[in-house]
């Protein structure tokens, strides 16, 4: 396939199919997640206090409701549409879906944003879901008895695995444009300092979305502007040569 055929296949054959599956499974996913609470109610008569459930929902919505919208928007440019369908249904996005799909792309040597990149990211993400479910299933079968025997040192050390993972990932992807990466990191650090100082306390759960949303969109805008300036400079240089 040449490049046009590839794009045409991708846009007209592959993507429409994936959009259909993604939406359908998303809706089914929402519905089936109600099965456990319904079984609790029907089989065991374990019924929530209906008068107090709205208050619980509103408390939760106040804490997380903004993220329902901000996270899909923030992650879209990394996950793409197919990745979005998968990642939000399977959860654990920052700590698992994003790292695994991007490492899959690195290892396969494909560029993010291309058709190949998108396919490889989807495959990588699917693998990470399957492994996550497998490990959780083994864990839950072994049960609390075995798991609680894990030495406290091991459980404590696991707290440092995610920050180490993020540091390593930033090195992996930031090293290609080290100035941009350092700039982004400084920006986010300043933002977190301001958040802790209470500057953004008027925004709902700001610490959870403000840095990522503004960094992602600010970064994209910056890079696109730099690129179009480069293009213009190149075009101007070409004209001069003529």
């Amino acid at each position: 396939m040449n490049k046009e055929q590839k794009t045409e296949y991708f846009e007209n054959t592959y993507m429409p199919k994936m959009h259909r599956y993604g939406k359908l499974i998303g809706v089914i996913g929402v519905l089936v997640s109600f099965i456990p609470p319904i079984v609790l109610a029907v089989v065991f008569k374990a019924i929530p206090d209906w008068g107090k459930l709205p208050a619980a929902f509103l408390t939760g919505a106040a804490a997380f409701g903004f993220l329902w919208i901000m996270e899909p928007i923030g992650y879209f440019n990394i996950l793409g549409p197919v990745g979005t369908y998968m990642a939000f249904l399977s959860g654990n996005i920052s700590n698992m879906r994003v790292p695994c799909s991007s490492m899959a792309q690195v290892s396969a040597g494909v560029e993010p944003g291309t058709e190949e990149g998108s396919l490889i990211a989807t495959i990588g993400m699917a693998v990470s879901v399957l492994i996550n479910v497998t490990i959780l299933t083994i864990g839950v079968i072994l049960g609390t008895v075995v798991l609680s025997k894990l030495p406290a040192g091991v459980v404590g050390a696991l707290n440092y695995l995610l920050p180490a993972l993020f540091g390593a990932l930033l090195m992996q992807f930031g090293i290609k444009d080290i100035k941009y990466a350092i700039g982004m990191l400084l920006y986010c650090c300043v933002l977190y300092v301001l958040i802790y100082l209470g500057v953004f306390s008027w925004l709902p759960s700001a610490a959870n979305w403000l840095p990522i949303i503004t960094a992602v969109f600010g970064g994209i805008a910056f890079k696109l502007i730099v690129d179009s300036k480069k293009d213009k400079a190149a075009a101007a240089a070409e004209k001069k040569d003529e």
Binding site: G74, Y75, N77, I78, G80, S94, V98, S102, E111, P112, G113, T114, G117, L162, P163, F166, G167, L169, L170, F173, G174, K176, D177, Y180, A181, M184, L185, Y187, C188, C189, L191, Y192, V193, Y196, A207, P211, I212, A215, V216, G218, G219, I220, F222, K223, L224, D227
Partner: peptide
């Protein structure tokens, strides 16, 4: 090319914010 720029910029921004949340 622009798609690549967008994803590349987004991924570094995303990991920067994750790292910053642990640094600060």
């Amino acid at each position: 090319k622009r798609m690549g720029i967008i994803s590349g910029a987004a991924i570094v921004a995303c990991f920067s914010s994750f790292v910053a949340s642990h640094l600060i």
